[in-house]
Amino acid sequence: MNVFGVDIGGSGIKGAPVDVLRGELTQERFKVLTPHPATPDAVADCVRQVMEHFGTPAGPVGATFPGVVVGGTTRTAANVAKDWIGRDAAGLLGERLGTPVTVLNDADAAGLAEMHFGAGRGRRGTVIVLTFGTGIGSAVFTDGKLVANTELGHLELQGHDAETRASTRAKEEEGLKWNHWARRVERYLAHVEMLFSPELFVIGGGVSRKAAKFLPLIEGVSAEIVPAELENNAGIVGAAMAAAAATGAAVPASAA
């Protein structure tokens, strides 16, 4: 079964139809830049543009959001316009697209995909999926069950919001070399490990494609650390999984 997934990020909005039983994109994803300011109406227009690239697919749509999402309403907005706070995102996108839309936290969506089809598949205990990009997203799983909206990118790290120090954006804006950035990531992972004692870290986001440049440099963490297998498609896949589950479609049992 194909369900459309959209991943709304602080720098880009991308989407594609997804085979939710296989966890695979059925067409090459299409991406547009996130508008600035990233207001609800402007972002909704971009989501519609992404969908229309594929001929306005029929059926349910899943969409991620870079912040806390409760019952389809966005509660925080760290990397988009503050107008999103308290907004019925599911209702807004559903009206704009003309089809039911399920909205969830972006890292939670990526985590769902990695736990069912990627690097976390079959793993028990505590697994933490971290997405490094404009910010740092987190998805925490205990024996395969998601603890939603953890937002561990906003933990304090050396007096700063962690994502302002260890995100991919911080690396780019400060012109950090891989070894310097890896030390920051290591300090962040060590802090998260101290709080949650995970057996496994899965490192996602676009930077996961370059895992060989920095993961071998991280030594001060006891937990196993692996790159995401779905790389930067995980959010799209997880969004589609959530939409399929919300509409009662056949999805992997633990996705619901």
Rank of each mutant, 00 (worst) to 15 (best):
V3P: 02
V3M: 11
V3G: 05
F4T: 01
G5Q: 08
G5C: 07
G5K: 03
G5V: 00
G5H: 05
V6F: 00
V6P: 00
V6K: 02
D7E: 14
D7Y: 03
D7H: 03
D7G: 04
G9D: 10
G10R: 06
G10N: 05
S11G: 10
S11I: 08
G12W: 08
G12D: 05
I13D: 02
I13N: 00
K14L: 12
G15H: 09
G15D: 02
G15Q: 12
P17H: 12
D19V: 08
D19R: 09
D19C: 13
V20M: 02
L21P: 03
L21Y: 01
R22P: 01
R22E: 10
G23V: 01
G23N: 04
G23L: 05
E24L: 12
L25R: 05
L25C: 12
E28H: 05
E28T: 14
R29F: 13
R29T: 05
R29V: 06
F30A: 00
L33V: 14
T34K: 00
P35S: 11
P35C: 09
P35L: 10
H36D: 10
H36Y: 12
H36A: 12
A38S: 14
A38V: 03
T39V: 07
T39I: 11
P40S: 08
P40F: 12
P40T: 11
D41G: 10
D41L: 13
V43N: 04
V43E: 02
V43S: 03
V43R: 01
A44R: 13
A44M: 14
A44D: 08
D45S: 15
V47H: 07
V47G: 00
Q49C: 02
V50D: 02
M51F: 02
E52L: 13
E52T: 13
E52V: 07
E52D: 15
F54M: 04
F54Q: 00
F54A: 00
F54K: 00
G55N: 04
G55C: 10
P57C: 08
P57A: 10
P57V: 09
P57M: 10
A58I: 03
G59P: 09
G59L: 06
G59E: 08
